[in-house]
Simulated assay, not measured.
Amino acid sequence: MPQPESGDWLAQHVESGQTMKSYLISPYKTVPYGTHNTIYIQPIGSFNHPRAPPLDVINEFAKVFFSECEVELLPTVDFTYNMKKRDRGGVSQYLTSDLHKYLCETRSKRDWRRELLCVAVTMADIYPGDGWNFVYGEAVPSENVGVYSFARLDPLFYQVTAKEILRTPLIKEHSIIILRRSIKIILHEIGHLFGLDHCVYYLCLMNGANNETEMDREPLHLCPVCLHKLHSTLQFDVRHLYETFANLCDTYGLEKECKWYQNRLQYLQYFFY
C-alpha cells in the first residue's frame, strides 16, 4: 500500500484496518440465508443522459462478482417530493438518508422473500449531511441498503457546466473511464454491505477514495485479505469468478483489468491446478 498523498482518503481518515478475525465476528455484514439471495439494483431519477453509464452492463459485472447471489436490475423510479435536496454551486444534491429511507419503505413492493439487499443508483449528486460536500455512495449495513451516485464519474464533471456536458459527444476514452469508475463504485459499496471495511493493506477495490484521481489508482479487484473475507461469506469459485470477469472486461474494453485477471488465472493454474 503506497503512502497516502495529500487529500487522499487515508490522509484525512484514520483507519486501522479490518482483520479476518474482526470480519468474521462483525454483526454488520449481510449473509445470504434461505430464499434471501437477491441483490436488487434500483435506479432513481433519469438515466436518459447521453453520457450515463450503461446500467445493463454494470448489472452484468455485479452478477459475475457476486455470483453466488441473484442480481436484478429494477425499473427506474423518480425522486419523490419528500427526498431532501440542496443546491451546491448550481448542482442539485440529494440527501442519502432520504434515499435509504425510500428503499426501506418500498421493500414490501419488491419480492421481500428473495431480497438480500437493495442498492440505489442515480445520476444525481448526493451528500450525507451538512458537513460534507458530497459522497460517491453510502451504505447502511444494518438495513441492507445503500445509495450510489455516478454524477461525478464523468471526466468532464469538474471542467464544464452540466449543460455543456449534455452537449458534448461521448468519446470512447471517456466511455471506458465512466464505465470503469461506475463498476468500481457499485462493487465497492455492495462490498461494504457484505461487511467489508475499507482496506488499508494493499491497493484494493475496497480502498477508500476522496476523489476521482485516487479512485483511478485503485484496481478493479480485491486484495488477498478482502477476497478471503468475501469468499468466507459467499463461498464462490475464485477461478470461475476470475475467468468470467476477465471475459467481461475483454468484451467491454477494460484492457488492463482483463490482463490482470488473466495473469492471476495463469498463476492459479500453475500453482493450484
Score class of each variant (00 low, 15 high):
residue 272 F to E: 15
residue 153 L to A: 00
residue 203 L to T: 06
residue 95 L to V: 08
residue 119 V to N: 01
residue 138 E to H: 15
residue 80 T to E: 06
residue 160 V to F: 02
residue 57 V to Y: 03
residue 192 H to P: 08
residue 219 P to I: 04
residue 113 R to G: 13
residue 158 Y to N: 15
residue 108 S to A: 11
residue 86 R to V: 14
residue 114 R to Q: 13
residue 141 P to L: 15
residue 96 T to N: 13
residue 169 P to L: 04
residue 122 T to R: 10
residue 50 P to H: 06
residue 236 F to D: 00
residue 182 S to D: 03
residue 106 T to E: 08
residue 245 F to K: 04
residue 151 A to Q: 02
residue 249 C to L: 03
residue 45 G to P: 11
residue 57 V to W: 07
residue 52 A to Q: 07
residue 238 V to E: 12
residue 245 F to P: 02
residue 157 F to S: 00
residue 51 R to I: 01
residue 137 G to C: 15
residue 247 N to W: 11
residue 188 H to I: 02
residue 271 F to P: 13
residue 67 S to G: 14
residue 43 P to A: 12
residue 212 E to S: 12
residue 146 G to M: 10
residue 135 V to N: 11
residue 187 L to E: 05
residue 21 K to Q: 07
residue 3 Q to D: 13
residue 17 G to A: 08
residue 22 S to V: 03
residue 48 N to S: 11
residue 195 G to S: 13
residue 94 Y to G: 05
residue 178 I to H: 06
residue 190 I to L: 15
residue 67 S to R: 09
residue 30 T to D: 00
residue 149 S to G: 15
residue 40 Y to D: 07
residue 144 N to G: 15
residue 106 T to D: 08
residue 132 W to K: 14
residue 223 C to A: 12
residue 228 H to P: 03
residue 150 F to K: 00
residue 201 Y to R: 11
residue 170 L to T: 03
residue 98 D to S: 08
residue 204 C to P: 00
residue 247 N to P: 04
residue 9 W to S: 06
residue 247 N to T: 07
residue 220 L to K: 05
residue 92 S to V: 09
residue 95 L to F: 09
residue 164 E to G: 03
residue 208 G to Y: 08
residue 196 L to S: 12
residue 166 L to S: 10
residue 89 G to Y: 05
residue 199 C to E: 00
residue 100 H to R: 06
residue 89 G to K: 07
residue 231 H to T: 10
residue 32 P to F: 01
residue 52 A to G: 06
residue 241 L to R: 07
residue 200 V to G: 04
residue 83 M to G: 09
residue 82 N to E: 04
residue 248 L to K: 01
residue 123 M to P: 08
residue 237 D to C: 15
residue 120 A to W: 09
residue 126 I to N: 14
residue 33 Y to D: 00
residue 165 I to N: 05
residue 45 G to L: 00
residue 173 E to R: 08
residue 103 L to W: 09
residue 246 A to F: 08
residue 26 S to F: 06
residue 207 N to G: 03
residue 17 G to W: 06
residue 113 R to W: 06
residue 210 N to R: 11
residue 72 E to T: 12
residue 195 G to A: 13
residue 150 F to N: 00
residue 252 Y to A: 02
residue 175 S to F: 02
residue 194 F to H: 15
residue 72 E to Y: 04
residue 29 K to V: 04
residue 132 W to A: 14
residue 169 P to R: 04
residue 135 V to W: 05
residue 79 F to L: 06
residue 268 L to T: 09
residue 15 E to F: 05
residue 266 Q to R: 15
residue 90 G to V: 02
residue 220 L to M: 05
residue 157 F to T: 01
residue 213 T to Q: 10
residue 24 L to H: 04
residue 238 V to M: 03
residue 182 S to R: 04
residue 214 E to G: 12
residue 263 N to W: 09
residue 273 Y to C: 14
residue 48 N to H: 13
residue 273 Y to F: 15
residue 146 G to E: 12
residue 140 V to G: 14
residue 6 S to H: 11
residue 97 S to F: 14
residue 189 E to F: 13
residue 64 V to W: 01
residue 76 T to H: 05
residue 52 A to N: 05
residue 128 P to V: 06
residue 56 D to T: 12
residue 134 F to A: 09
residue 86 R to L: 13
residue 150 F to V: 00
residue 89 G to H: 07
residue 43 P to Q: 11
residue 218 E to A: 02
residue 86 R to K: 12
residue 219 P to F: 05
residue 83 M to L: 09
residue 266 Q to F: 11
residue 123 M to N: 15
residue 45 G to D: 06
residue 38 T to A: 06
residue 22 S to T: 11
residue 109 K to C: 08
